[in-house]
Nucleic acid binder design. Structure first.
Length: 894
RNA sequence: GCGGGUGUGGCGGAACUGGUAGACGCGACGGAUUCAAAAUCCGUUUCUGGUGACAGAGUGUCGGUUCGAGUCCGACCACCCGCACCA
């Protein structure tokens, strides 16, 4: 019977067993005393402080910096451990490694905490950072803390304001009105993600769609560049590149101007411009649809109360995706008619439709029901004609019909006059060619146009805890930039959070300034920047964190792009796209000389845990649950009540489901090395890993095993110099070590940490038996053993640095293993002289052949045919074929 | 709807460009050590049949290419993720 305590009673008290048996040399490894000692040793040696003057080749490894939300959680731990393994490995390989850490410290949670706890956001944030910094330090990460900063440091946002002004000067910043989600209770703009079912996520108020003057970065100037450069980002996951491609959303089409029928048009309006990617379907058009915000819709609504009501209704529905998704497709006939560009006699109605977006294309479309499902639904609803114009190749034009499903694939043109019989691609060209040459009031009727889905980046937030936008509003001079010498625009510290809305607006003095141009009374911009701005260049700042200017150009050029960036897939689009834009902007403004910030990108999986739920629906934390495996299957019981609880699915660790295990719980019981080792074991790093107590215990078991292996070998290898054994009885020891060294190296280079760990396990297994008799072994064997132990220690060092140091010290190694060079494997030792070839008969494995590695094909064939089981299978006949794949396999075809 | 990914023992997962399927770990079972336990060590562990050597089956399903398929091709099924009134 096994009843395992699942956290509730605390971890098994392993520290009581400092000495296992009287007379036995090896004590158990005690991470609680060992880990802090080595952390201190590293710090005193300033081992991880990186110098910009170091001449060696650079390697920049960076993990996405954390938001100081309260405590480090286990997901952070996994992320930073991965980066740390790479950093420590590259350092051992002789690179000058930059591995910094900082804090993405502006944002709403600090304001929320301020409102709830009556502390200033600044105070709360720095307190939180202090706690989290200590937690990170417990992990034994090889970080250069001398470069640490938080984005809310005045020093940092000062330089960000400098960048903003430079961007502004270069024309990369613009101010325009745009539609936003406005929460009327909290009196602030909400991001789309913050609108849930049309309501503000905090206030629960119905969100309004409002027009507001906002600051924007002109990321769309770079649409084409940002898209094309994705092809060159070979160190990025294809998935992320694809997501960015889709997000940028390039499409090629035609912008076509349709003349309005004079007596139906509002005064002064003569034409309607639409964008289409399918000009080939122009003879299938049966209606025009325009956005509710389209100028023509507004004008038409002026004299039409019913239409005005419809337009108002569309606007109220809001802009959030969730609302749009469920809204029924509706239209309203404006009474306006347009003439077909190829046939002045043919007129089509203009509808205002709730599914047309003002933000994309021209805010107007022509509807071709036969070729677009949405248009088809619309046409059926309002009784509009449906004329098929493209049919699949081989279909019969006379009988081809559209019923409930539109045909949007490629095909052959029908019912399209001069286009009939062409492919739809040819028809596209033909329509474009003709309309480009026709004119309407002196200009071409149509123009080829490339459209992007990407929109400019709105950075205005009506918040306090963010980087102030360094602009001033003057009644006389308009919007005036704050002169650089007046920077930084500092956030005030005395802030009142009693009322909703932006506290900067209400501050008694902060916003009142003199206009830098005319010295009249003027007002500061009270919007602050989106926190994504802060994270769009922090990786550059790390290269010269104390510089007066935002960057030191040469230093930035030397370190960047980041060789290996590691973080969550959730940032695949926004953060990474913004950073790519920002880097381009910084190049434009002379702060650096490259376009792409991240050469290698790795997106790691989440840490997940089972969920537990009591009968009454309460979520239970792992520490409140006892797991019982004594009966049939696993059962879980609530510790407090003894009642059985439901074991639920694996979920990302979250407070709401209480399925969290904190990094402290682990480090305090098993130590940081166990957490690090377990986190990278088993699951590939880009997939989710399930945190289990058994797994953690297993990782800790391995630590003790390595410690014992090294400790027991130590006396026998103390007085020998390390040397590989090429032949003789000790050769297997050296071969095992060198093979492992080669493979682990390759695995780490590929970030295949789970495979590297499996290989290290294997090496420990292979050393186990020969090390049992080491005390009586000859000198050559002990030399080989010493070398193997040193290799083993180097292999575990990136993963379990504390244990590695302790082992290094135990064998009398010189200095710190964290500061020593990676060993080199001997190519002669990673190949075997004798190889075992599997032998197949008709593709099924029937046995093995052991033969010299150099044996040629003929020799192999001869040896194979001489094998008992082969002769038996052939039964005297000669084989039809013998396939010998050198050093791989032999297949005899009978 | 569009785009992408994944599917291998009881579980997490290995398997480089087609070449011994199941490395390594977890769990389980058996044994050693112990007065007993903890810890540790040794062994077994894809399934079916057989005491056994061995035989047969087996990488979501069906089919194909090949001397040989987890890997390549075609169709399908399931799950996961991203985007989505994009004209």
């Amino acid at each position: 019977m096994t009843v395992s305590a699942n956290r509730g009673e605390g971890p098994p008290n392993i520290f009581l067993f400092l000495c296992e048996k009287p007379g036995m040399a090896t004590e158990r490894y005690n991470p609680r005393t060992s880990e802090p000692r080595w952390q201190k040793a590293w710090e005193e040696a300033r081992l991880f402080e990186t110098s910009n003057e170091d001449e060696r080749p650079t390697y920049y490894v960076l993990e996405m910096f954390p938001y100081p939300s309260g405590r480090i959680h286990i997901g952070h731990t996994r992320n930073y451990t991965m980066g740390d393994v790479v950093a420590r490995y590259k350092r051992a390989k002789g690179f000058n490694v930059l591995h910094p850490m900082g804090w993405d410290a502006f944002g709403m949670p600090a304001e929320n905490a301020a409102m709830q706890n009556k502390v200033q956001p600044k105070e709360w944030t720095y307190q939180t950072i202090a706690v989290m910094r200590d937690q990170l330090k417990m992990m034994g990460l090889s970080l250069d803390w001398s470069r640490e900063f938080a984005t809310c440091d005045v020093d940092y946002y000062h330089r960000q304001q400098m960048l903003f002004l430079d961007f502004h000067e270069k024309g990369l910043v613009t101010r325009k009105t745009s539609k936003v989600n406005w929460d009327p209770v909290d009196r602030t703009v909400l991001a789309n993600e913050q609108v849930i079912d049309g309501r503000g996520w905090r206030s629960g108020a119905l969100v309004e769609s409002r027009e507001l003057a906002q600051w924007f970065f002109k990321i769309t100037d770079y649409s084409e560049d940002l898209l094309e450069a994705l092809d060159g980002l070979e160190g990025w996951p294809e998935k992320v590149r694809l997501m960015q491609r889709n997000w940028i959303g390039r499409s090629e089409g035609l912008s076509i101007r349709w003349p309005l029928v004079e007596d139906t048009a509002p005064h002064g309006e003569q034409e309607l411009e639409v964008y289409t990617t399918r000009p080939d379907t122009i003879f299938g058009a049966s209606f025009m649809a325009i956005a509710a915000d389209h100028p023509l819709a507004r004008k038409a609504a002026e004299g039409n109360a019913e239409l005005a009501a419809f337009v108002e209704e569309c606007r109220r529905v809001g802009t959030s995706a969730a609302v749009l998704e469920t809204a029924e497709k509706k239209g309203f006939d404006t009474g306006i008619r347009v003439r077909h560009p190829f046939d002045p006699e043919w007129t089509l109605p203009v509808y205002v439709a709730n599914f047309v977006l003002m933000e994309y294309g021209t805010g107007a479309i022509f509807g071709c029901p036969s070729g677009d499902q949405r248009d088809l639904d619309f046409a059926r609803k309002y009784g509009l004609p449906v004329v098929p114009v493209v049919m699949p190749e081989g279909a019969d034009a006379a009988t081809f019909q559209i019923a409930d499903e539109a045909y949007s694939d490629d095909g052959v043109m029908i019912n399209s006059r001069f286009l009939d019989g062409l492919s739809n691609d040819e028809a596209f060209e033909e329509v474009a060619k003709q309309l480009e040459h026709e004119t309407l009031s002196g200009r071409p009727v149509a123009e080829r146009k490339v459209n992007f889905r990407l929109r400019d980046w709105g950075i205005s937030r009506q918040r306090y805890w963010g980087c102030p936008i360094p602009m001033i509003h003057c009644d006389a001079c308009g919007v005036v930039p704050v002169p650089k010498e007046d920077l930084p625009v500092k956030l005030p510290d005395d802030i009142d959070f009693e009322k909703p809305g932006n506290p900067l607006d209400r501050h008694p003095t902060w916003r009142h300034v003199k206009c830098p141009q005319c010295s009249a009374d003027a007002r500061r911009e009270t919007d602050t920047m989106d926190t994504f701005v802060d994270s769009s260049w922090y990786f550059v700042r790390f290269t010269a964190p104390h510089a007066e200017t935002p960057t030191e150009r040469d230093v930035a050029n030397r370190w960047l792009p980041v060789d290996q960036y590691i973080g969550g897939i959730e940032h695949a689009i926004l953060h990474l796209l913004y950073s790519r834009f920002f880097t381009r902007g910084m190049r434009e403004t002379g702060h650096l000389d490259f376009a792409e910030p991240f050469k290698g990108l790795f997106t790691q999986g989440m840490v997940v845990h089972e969920t537990y739920r009591a009968e009454d629906g309460r979520w239970l934390a792992p520490s409140e649950v006892r797991i019982d495996t004594s009966g049939e299957g696993r059962k879980a019981f609530e510790v407090a009540t003894g009642r059985e609880v439901t074991v639920g699915s694996l979920e990302k660790m979250s407070k709401s489901k209480k399925n969290t295990v904190s990094p402290e719980e682990i480090t305090e019981s098993f130590g940081a090395d166990t957490a690090r080792w377990f986190m990278l074991s088993d699951s590939p790093p880009d997939r989710d890993v399930e945190w289990t107590d058994d797994g953690a215990a297993g990782a800790h078991r391995f630590i003790q095993r390595v410690w014992r292996l090294v400790g027991e070998a130590a006396p026998a290898i103390a007085d020998v110099t390390p040397a590989a054994a090429r032949d003789g009885g000790a050769a297997p020891i050296s071969k095992a070590a060198h093979k492992a060294l080669k493979v682990v190296e390759e695995d780490i280079e590929q970030l295949a940490f789970n495979r590297a760990i499996a290989r290290i396990h294997q090496l420990a297994n292979e050393l186990q038996a020969p090390f049992g008799t080491l005390a009586e072994a000859d000198r050559a064997t002990r030399s080989a053993a010493r070398e193997a132990v040193e290799i083993l220690i180097h292999l575990i060092a990136p993963f379990m640095p504390h244990l590695a140091e302790e082992c290094w010290a135990a064998i009398g190694g010189e200095g710190l293993v964290s500061a020593s060079a990676w060993p080199q494997y001997d190519p002669a030792l990673v190949v075997d002289d004798l190889i075992v070839l599997p032998v197949q008969i008709n593709g099924k494995k029937r046995g093995d052949l052991t033969i010299a590695r150099e044996a040629d094909q003929a020799a192999v064939e001869k040896a194979v045919l001489a094998l008992d089981f082969v002769q038996k299978a052939l039964n005297g006949a000669s084989p039809r074929r013998v396939i010998v794949v050198p050093n791989r396999i032999v297949n005899v075809v009978a």
